[in-house]
C-alpha cells in the first residue's frame, strides 16, 4: 500500500511575493489571501506542536483564533498577536475600501506584515527544535520520512 502523501508545503514566501506583485487588481482577493497566508503560517506552528488547528473564529477571524491557540501554554507566542491583528486590520481596509487610492500600498504593507509573521514563526520553530521553517516543521517532515 502506497504511503499517504502529505500535501506539498505551501510556498509562503512565493505567495507573499506574488501578493506584492499583484497589487490591488482585486482588493477582495488580496484581503482573503493576506488572511489565508497568516492562517497557514500559524497552522504550521500549531501542527508542529502536535495539535489540531482550530476551525473556530475569534472576533470573526480564524487567524485570531489560531493565534490564541498557538499562545495557549506558550505566552511568548503573544509577541505575534499584534501582527495578526494588523493583518486583519489591513484585510478589513481592503474589503471596506477597495477603491481607496492607498489600496495598493495597503496590500504591500499587509504582505510585509505577513512576512514578519512568517519570519517570527520560523524563529520560534527553530528555537523550539521543531524545524527550520514553518513549512518544514520537524513533526511533519518526520512523519513524511517515516512514510506515514
Amino acid at each position: 500500500m502506497a504511503a499517504a502523501q502529505l500535501p506539498e508545503p505551501v510556498p509562503i514566501e512565493e505567495r507573499i511575493e506574488a501578493l506584492m506583485a499583484q497589487g490591488v487588481a482585486d482588493a477582495e482577493r488580496s484581503a482573503a489571501e493576506l488572511l489565508a497566508i497568516g492562517e497557514v503560517v500559524i497552522e504550521r506552528f500549531v501542527l508542529a506542536r502536535g495539535l489540531v488547528p482550530t476551525e473556530a473564529t475569534h472576533e470573526g477571524f480564524r487567524l485570531l483564533a489560531l493565534q490564541r491557540q498557538g499562545a495557549a501554554g506558550e505566552p511568548s507566542f503573544n509577541a505575534c498577536r499584534e501582527s495578526c491583528r494588523e493583518l486583519v486590520y489591513h484585510a478589513n481596509l481592503l474589503r471596506l475600501e477597495p477603491w481607496h487610492p492607498e489600496a495598493g500600498r495597503r496590500v504591500r504593507l499587509g504582505a510585509m506584515i505577513a512576512r514578519h509573521l512568517m519570519l517570527f514563526i520560523d524563529g520560534k520553530l527553530e528555537i523550539a527544535g521543531l524545524g527550520e521553517f514553518c513549512c518544514a516543521a520537524r513533526p511533519l517532515r518526520a512523519a513524511e520520512a517515516a512514510g506515514a
Binding site: 509577541a79 505575534c80 499584534e82 501582527s83 494588523e86 486590520y89 489591513h90 504593507l109 510585509m112 506584515i113 512576512r115 514578519h116 519570519l119 517570527f120 520560523d122 524563529g123 527553530e126 528555537i127
Partner: peptide, 26 residues
C-alpha cells in the same frame, strides 16, 4: 504596522539569520 513586532533580539546570537531577516523586514 510593525511597531510592536518582534525584532529577533532574543535569538540574535543563536540564530542570527532569522534576526537579520526580521530586522530587514522592519
Amino acid at each position: 504596522p510593525l511597531k510592536t513586532a518582534c525584532c529577533g533580539g532574543a535569538h540574535t546570537l543563536s540564530d542570527s539569520d532569522t534576526s537579520t531577516k526580521l530586522v530587514l523586514n522592519l
